[in-house]
């Protein structure tokens, strides 16, 4: 596999990603909508934040990561498997590693677009960047690995329609249990302890730990996120079937 093959693959993946309107709805419209809507509705924002956007922005970044790495990647890959594309690629000089690299680069580029828009809208709503931004990028990457692992696990084991339904359901569930629009300690105790071990809340809490001055870095959440980032891709690699 050559570099030009890889570049062509990334370009094709990116073209298809940007052509899928329903995917842009989940990856761009919903996170930005949540950011704007909840910043105007400060009822759910916990005490101790100067501005609702300071609480919301890390959660919305987590939401964006989840939508790009799990929902968009998972559904697209599931249907590529359904249409025999993954099988056909197996007979080309593009190696499986090449395909995985291309998909990774595509997700990261989509996230750059998402984060650019989120930060721009956040800034318009009064958010100011701080020194936590750089380590937050590392957390975003770890979160991407965790959610991409979940997305690929669904895509490589379920029928395409099931991947579509389940990844959207997970997205919605984790939006509510992910501490994104409101803090998880407002949840009933049972749900809160469930949310604590899921990757969504772990990601938004880690990002808050870095981006909100005085929040303190949540080591427990970081451990949970890291376990998902190792476990989900490993399981995906073991379980992935290239043909439906």
């Amino acid at each position: 596999m050559t570099r030009s093959a890889l570049v062509a693959q990334v370009r094709a993946e990116l073209t298809m990603t940007l052509r899928r309107g329903e995917s842009l709805m989940v990856t761009l419209a919903i996170p930005l909508g949540v950011l704007v809507f909840f910043s105007k509705l400060d009822a759910t924002i916990p005490d101790g934040y100067d501005d609702p956007v300071d609480f919301l922005l890390p959660g919305v970044i987590a939401l964006a990561v989840m939508s790009a790495a799990m929902v968009s990647l998972g559904i697209a890959t599931g249907f590529e498997r359904r249409y025999g594309v993954l099988k056909r690629l197996g007979a080309t000089p593009l190696s499986r590693r090449g395909l995985v690299v291309a998909k990774t680069v595509t997700v990261l580029l989509l996230e750059v677009l998402q984060l650019g828009l989120i930060v721009a809208v956040g800034a318009a709503l009064g958010w100011t960047p701080n020194a936590g931004a750089l380590p937050a990028v590392a957390i975003v990457i770890i979160g991407t690995v965790a959610f991409a692992g979940i997305g690929m696990l669904l895509a490589g084991t379920l029928r395409a329609e099931a991947t579509l339904a389940l990844s959207n359901a997970l997205f919605l569930m984790l939006l509510f249990l992910g501490g994104m629009a409101y803090p998880i300690d407002k949840l009933p105790a049972v749900l809160e302890s469930l949310a604590d071990v899921l990757p969504a809340a772990a990601l938004s809490e880690c990002l808050r730990g870095l981006l909100v001055p005085g929040f303190g870095f949540p080591i427990g959440s970081f451990v949970v996120l890291s376990v998902w980032a190792v476990g989900a891709p490993l399981l995906a690699v073991r379980r992935f079937r290239w043909e439906e």
């Binding site: 249907f79 249409y83 025999g84 594309v85």
Partner: peptide, 9 residues
Amino acid sequence: LQEGGLYPG
């Protein structure tokens, strides 16, 4: 292949 294998998008 007997069927499929092309990106529909």
